[in-house]
Design a protein around this nucleic acid. Structure first.
Lengths: 192, 192
DNA sequence: GCAAACCGAATGAACATTCAATAGAGAGGA
DNA sequence: TCCTCTCTATTGAATGTTCATTCGGTTTGC
């Protein structure tokens, strides 16, 4: 029962895909059930309602993201390397999971996020904030509210990942490096 | 009959508000009608369907945005001033129209945008692209694909506006200036 | 045997859309 | 000035569909 019961995982996966294809609306529970290979009723064994299914899915994504961030940040490295690692790991996470990216974006911009269960704690963003706080305190980054830095860089990673996922422009390895460099050059303390 | 028939404007306005409050789902046509002060049937006099109402609303927002951009960019000014003007005008547009910002974000991340009428031409982004192309060609900006610069800066403006609109952190005038400076310092050509 | 997990047809509410009927606004005509 | 005629704008109740959710029953694991 621990490793996220197969069925439950299948329901999450199916919801993720369908919400990408059809949006929150346009994704009937019956379809979620069918693609997950379970009966409609079964979903209600695991989730209270459609809303709570979606909110829980979001929370599980939050957890994944937090994990990626934690694993990426090796605190023994110099700060600049840590920045590049964190940026790159999150970027890779999004492009490897385009469904997650799109679901996430749909969710945070929807009213789900304002009300209800989804919007409470934000451990992921908090970790980002403290990452930048360190940089500021150590005198490596400009003196800017770390929360602002956090949101800016987070937004930049998302934007970049969307470029890749939308596929209109393709990003070479060098282009990626360049983008990271642009951001770094912006936030790093001007010496002199 | 020319200036966007009062009724039609009221329907747009009502849709904008309700989609913010309740999302695309959770916004029944009957409610749109009631808030707009018209009968349900009237909406179908102006729009073919709910989908086309939403797509047309999006297009009207695109047009507004394009306008803001055009008006903000005074080509007689030095490039750096133009950049700051453009950035600030778009930022102001979003924070003065938070409903527009949120509707826009909901729309572009939804499946509406992938299919149908909404996603075709992108005059706004194209103008942004050519703005950055100029900067690159004139040797003021780093040699980066202008489309990438465009998406990055656009994303940054949106992120910043969201900080303001969400209201968790408040942005002073200096903070704003600093953010613009950070972006500028990132994209500008490193001399030596 | 007995929980817990699972099924899927049945229920009822919500909703997009339709349409027959009404109001209004102009255009002529006497 | 007043009276049609006509075309458009508007109404809101009625329609038919779609869906979230329920629940009585079945299966499965222990």
């Amino acid at each position: 029962m621990e490793p996220l019961a197969e069925k439950k995982k299948a329901i999450f996966e199916s919801t993720l895909e369908l919400v990408n294809e059809n949006g929150f609306h346009g994704t009937p529970m019956s379809m979620v059930a069918k693609r997950a290979g379970v009966a409609a009723g079964t979903i209600y064994h695991y989730f209270e309602s459609k809303d709570s299914l979606i909110c829980e899915l979001f929370q599980s994504i939050e957890a994944q993201r937090l994990n990626v961030l934690k694993e990426a940040d090796d605190k023994t490295l110099p700060y600049q390397d840590r920045f590049f690692n964190v940026w790159r790991s999150l970027y890779l996470f999004y492009i490897k999971n385009p469904n997650v990216l799109k679901f996430y974006e749909q969710f945070v911009n929807s009213p789900y996020n304002s009300t209800k269960k989804g919007g409470g704690f934000k451990p992921y963003l908090n970790l980002i904030f403290s990452f930048f706080e360190e940089g500021v305190n150590e005198g490596i980054l400009r003196k800017v509210d770390p929360q602002v830095l956090g949101v800016m860089v987070h937004g930049n990673i998302i934007s970049t990942a969307k470029i890749h996922v939308h596929g209109t422009i393709s990003l070479s390895e060098e282009a990626l490096k360049l983008i990271q460099q642009i951001v770094w050059d912006g936030i790093v303390k001007r010496d002199r």
